[in-house]
Simulated assay, not measured.
Amino acid sequence: MTESATRQLPRGRHGLPRETVVAAQRDRILAAMAEAMAENGYVGTPVAAVIKRAGVSRETFYEQFRSKEDCFEAAYERAAELMLTGILAATGAEFDGETRAERMERLLGAYLEALAAQPAYARVFLVEVYAVGPEAIARRTHLQETFVAMVADVLGAESESQRFACQTLVAALSSMVTARIAVGDPDGLRELRGPLLDLVRRSGNLFGDIVVED
């Protein structure tokens, strides 16, 4: 969790611009929503619990969000942002000189580390989304397809069958990481990297143009 999401503003007159105050309150509310759901699930998390954890008033909450579902949607967007930021930070460097298997290792490691580093938001992204409704699930599906496209690009998938194999790989990965997030096992997330990379390396051209050097 970021420092801005947990830091309380000073009491009394602080001279901070209104937009700074609003942004800090929003960060705290989103972090509180994620943490409360990690403990009690979406259904078991009332607005009152979020307000108490965030240290804001009910009026402040409803100035920012129309409802609990609206707050969840914003928390989901924050979870997706954190995950994608973590991936892009780790994979943003040029791939010159790396094999496709090495590129995949970097991409997969960044994905798993981003989830393990933000367990509350990871639960929002992977678990609680199913309790909210079809619109939220559709958004999750869209983001998963974005990750499929990244995997297909890294692995050099060109044919329809290779792209389908990449979809299958990401779907299996999603199922495995969701199970570990659901039981609070971030170390188990990181441990998936080795076996999955071994699977990719032994796949030949199933997923794409993989070249494995002896």
Rank of each mutant, 00 (worst) to 15 (best):
E160W: 15
A116K: 02
N205Q: 07
L189Q: 02
R103Q: 01
V124A: 08
F72M: 11
D185I: 13
F61T: 02
E59L: 13
R202V: 05
A110P: 12
R123A: 14
F207M: 04
Q25L: 03
Y42G: 06
R66V: 15
S57Y: 01
R123M: 15
V56A: 08
A172Y: 05
R190Y: 04
D70C: 11
S159H: 07
A5Y: 04
R18Y: 01
F125L: 08
L199V: 09
E19Q: 02
R100G: 04
E19R: 02
L206R: 03
M37K: 11
F95A: 10
E81N: 13
T20W: 06
P46K: 10
T146P: 03
P195Q: 09
L173Y: 08
R103T: 11
S174W: 04
S57R: 10
E73M: 14
A114E: 06
T141N: 09
R100P: 00
R7K: 00
A172K: 06
V50I: 13
E98G: 05
A157S: 09
A54V: 06
T6P: 03
M150Q: 07
A122G: 10
V170C: 01
A38G: 03
D214I: 11
A157V: 09
N205Y: 01
K52T: 06
M37I: 09
M176E: 01
